[in-house]
């Protein structure tokens, strides 16, 4: 006697075959092989490309945002020579008007 559940499960439809899929996979594997064979001999452009790839950021937007925040934070906390000028601005701009310039002015 066939179990009622088993009988019901046989009614599940077969997935339709994808006629183009095998050829798509074969084509994709050939592309991969092209890349492999290029890497076989020394290729200067390829070498520079690989070097550039080493510096690729996995999440550029996040990296830029982090650097921006760190930059702002560092900028606000590190003293620069211009800050010293700012603190001593009055003396920096002070002109001794009592100084005798003589007649040449």
């Amino acid at each position: 006697m066939v179990d009622e559940l088993d009988e019901l499960l046989t009614k599940r439809a077969e997935p339709q075959a994808r006629s183009h899929l095998a050829e798509k996979i074969i084509a994709a594997s050939l592309e991969g092989r092209g890349q492999k064979s290029k890497a076989g001999g020394f290729d200067l452009a390829g070498w520079f490309g690989a070097l550039a790839d080493e510096f690729l950021l996995p999440r550029p937007a996040l990296a830029m945002a982090v650097f921006l925040v760190l930059g702002l934070f560092a900028g606000m906390n590190i003293e620069t020579p211009t800050d010293e000028v700012g603190e001593d601005l009055v003396s920096y701009l002070f002109v001794d008007e009592s100084f005798d310039t003589g007649d040449w002015l």
Binding site: E14, P15, A17, R18, L21, A22, I25, I26, S29, L30
Partner: peptide, 19 residues
Amino acid sequence: QDHQAFAMLVRRHTDRFYA
């Protein structure tokens, strides 16, 4: 690295593994 053999495997089994 025999690509022809790979292609045969792919053609033989794609439908089954897709299912």
